[in-house]
Amino acid sequence: MEQRIADLRCKEIISINDGTRYGFVGDVEVELDTGRIRALVVPGRLRLFGLLGRREDRLFSWESVRRFGEDIILVEEHPRRLPEE
């Protein structure tokens, strides 16, 4: 089955530990030397309709991914937070 990185944007990340729904993949972190995916990034939610900016992005390591489904990605660990810009 052939997949593209762009197809990940349509998938929601869900924890297999407690069922927490973190949101949809917005970006991926890639190791440029090897071309391997290091992490999936879920953009932070808007604060007050975007007037107060966004919350921090969440980063899920590639090693935490357990299963890919049609619409979801199951992860085992909790995300790290990226600092706000």
Rank of each mutant, 00 (worst) to 15 (best):
G50H: 10
V28N: 01
V42Q: 02
V42S: 03
V65H: 02
L48K: 11
R36Q: 13
R45C: 12
R54I: 07
F24H: 13
R58Y: 10
L59E: 04
L59F: 06
I72V: 15
V41F: 04
F49C: 12
E77K: 03
R81D: 06
L8C: 10
S61M: 08
T34L: 11
F24I: 10
M1C: 05
R80P: 00
V25N: 02
D33N: 14
D27W: 00
R54E: 15
G35F: 07
R4W: 09
G19F: 15
G53A: 08
T34R: 11
S61I: 02
K11P: 06
G35N: 07
T34Q: 13
L40I: 11
L74M: 10
R54F: 14
F60D: 00
W62Y: 09
E84Q: 09
D57C: 08
E31R: 13
G53V: 04
D57E: 12
L8Y: 08
W62K: 05
E56R: 10
R66Q: 15
G35W: 07
R66F: 11
L46G: 05
G23W: 03
I14G: 02
D71C: 10
G19A: 14
R9G: 12
S64F: 03
Y22E: 03
G23S: 14
R55C: 13
L32H: 08
E29R: 09
G19C: 13
L46M: 14
R45S: 14
D7K: 02
G23P: 06
